[in-house]
Design a protein around this nucleic acid. Structure first.
Lengths: 219, 219
DNA sequence: CCCTTTCTGTATCGATGACTACATAAAAGA
DNA sequence: TCTTTTATGTAGTCATCGATACAGAAAGGG
C-alpha cells in the first residue's frame, strides 16, 4: 500500500493550494514557473513529477478552487429552499469570499484567464467552460423555481439567469478593483430588488418598502 | 514644417489601431512584440522609434480605445437628457460594440489586464484607474439626476452607481464568453427594471407592465 | 555635392519563459 | 545487502521574451 520509491518530501495538497493562490492572484499567463516553485517551496522537477506541468497544475488548481472557495455557488443553488434565496445566497456568499483578506480578491474562474495568447487557448476555454457551468446551474435553479410555482411561467428564465450571472461576474471585477463588502452588499441589494414579482415602489437603493422577501444575512 | 529626416514608411494611426485590436483580443501580457509587429506590419525598431516600447504603446492603444470604441460611455453620460436615459444608453450602446464582429468582443478596459505579474503592475493599475473613472462618471451623472429632481434624495447614489458599473463590467465577460446582442439586451432590460421608482409588479424578465420609461432603441 | 537627421531591415542582445538530463538520496522488496 | 523505484537538487536545455546595435536608405539644409 505504501508507494515503492522515495517518499515525497512536501505536502502535495498544501503545495497545490499555494499554487492556486498564485494563479488566482496573477492569472495563468502572469504566473511563471519560478513564481510557482517559489510559493510551493519545491523545485521544478518535483512540480513536474507531481503535477505534470504548468497547464495541468492550473487545471488542478481550478478544481481545488471549485471544491473550496468556489463551492458556494453550487452549494447555494443546491441547498437553498427557494430560487430567490438561492440566487441571493449565491451572491452574498461569494461577495464575502471575494473580499476576504486571507486570499486574492474576486473569483479565480472569472479573473485568472479572461484573455490569452493563442498558445494558451485551452486554458482560456477551460475557465470559459467553468463559467458556462455556473450559468447552467443558475438557469436550472430558476427553471426549478418555475416548476415549483415560485416563479411565474411568464418569467424569462434565460434572461433572468444571464442577468444574475452578469452580476456575479461583475462583482469579481468590483472586488478586484478594491470595492469592499459594504459596497458589494449594496450592489447585491440593488440586484435583488428586480427579482420578478418584487413589489417595490422604492427599491433597495432608495427607501426600502414592501420587499416580499427579507434580505439574507450579510453580517 | 516637414520633419527633417527620412519620412516614416507606415501610417502611425493605422498601426496604433492594429496594436489596439491585438491588445484588446489577447490582453497586455498575452500579446508579444512579435504579435504587435506582425499586426502593425512593421519591425521592432520602427515600433520603438514611433511608440517608445510595449507599455507606452499599450497606453496609447488604451487612449485610442477611449476615443473610439470606449467613447460611448462618456458620451451617453454627458449627452442623454435624463440620468435614467444616460445609464440605459450607456449599457445598450456598449452592448452593441461588445458584440460587433468587426473587432474583439467585450471592453478592452475590462478585459485587457484584469490580473498581471508584479512586473506589469503599472499596466494593471492604469486600466484600474480607467475603470474608476467610469465609476466616477456614473456617480456624477446620478448625482446630477438627484440635483435636478429626477431621482429622490433618498436614493443611494453610491450604491446605484456601483450597481450599474457592475452590470457594465459583467456585460464584457458575458460578451467575451459568446453571449450575443439579444442576450445582452435581455440582461440590460432586467438591469433597468430596478431603476429607483420603477413601478414594476412584473419586470422586464416577466410580463412587462407599468414601466415608467420606454426602452431605448436596441435595433 | 556633403552633412545631418530620421527611419528601416537584419541580426542580434541579455533575461527569462517552460521544461528536463542527470546524478544522488531515500524508501520498499528480495 | 543489493536491486528497484521514485523523489530531489543542481544545472542545464531550447525557445521566446522585450528591447537594441548597426549599417544603409531616404529625406532636408547647406
Amino acid at each position: 500500500m505504501s508507494p515503492r520509491g522515495r517518499p515525497r518530501a512536501f505536502d502535495r495538497e498544501h503545495a497545490l493550494t499555494q499554487a492556486m493562490f498564485v494563479f488566482w492572484e496573477r492569472g495563468y499567463e502572469g504566473t511563471s514557473l519560478a513564481d510557482l516553485t517559489g510559493a510551493m517551496g519545491i523545485n521544478p522537477p518535483s512540480l513536474y513529477a507531481a503535477f505534470g506541468g504548468k497547464e495541468a497544475l492550473f487545471c488542478e488548481a481550478v478544481e481545488r478552487y471549485g471544491e473550496t472557495y468556489g463551492s458556494y455557488t453550487p452549494r447555494a443553488l443546491r441547498e437553498e429552499p427557494t430560487a430567490r434565496a438561492a440566487i441571493e445566497a449565491m451572491l452574498r456568499d461569494n461577495a464575502h469570499t471575494y473580499v476576504d483578506p486571507e486570499h486574492p480578491t474576486g473569483c479565480m474562474v472569472v479573473l485568472a484567464a479572461t484573455n490569452c495568447s493563442p498558445a494558451n487557448r485551452d486554458v482560456c476555454d477551460h475557465l470559459k467552460a467553468q463559467r458556462e457551468e455556473v450559468r447552467e446551474l443558475i438557469r436550472a435553479r430558476l427553471h426549478r423555481g418555475v416548476e415549483e410555482g415560485e416563479l411565474a411561467r411568464t418569467v424569462d428564465v434565460e434572461a433572468l439567469g444571464a442577468y444574475y450571472a452578469t452580476i456575479l461576474f461583475g462583482l469579481s471585477m468590483q472586488a478586484r478593483d478594491g470595492v469592499g463588502l459594504p459596497g458589494l452588499t449594496a450592489i447585491i441589494d440593488a440586484a435583488m430588488s428586480c427579482w420578478p414579482g418584487a413589489k417595490a415602489t422604492e427599491n433597495a437603493t432608495g427607501a426600502a418598502s414592501e420587499m416580499d422577501t427579507a434580505p439574507v444575512a450579510s453580517s
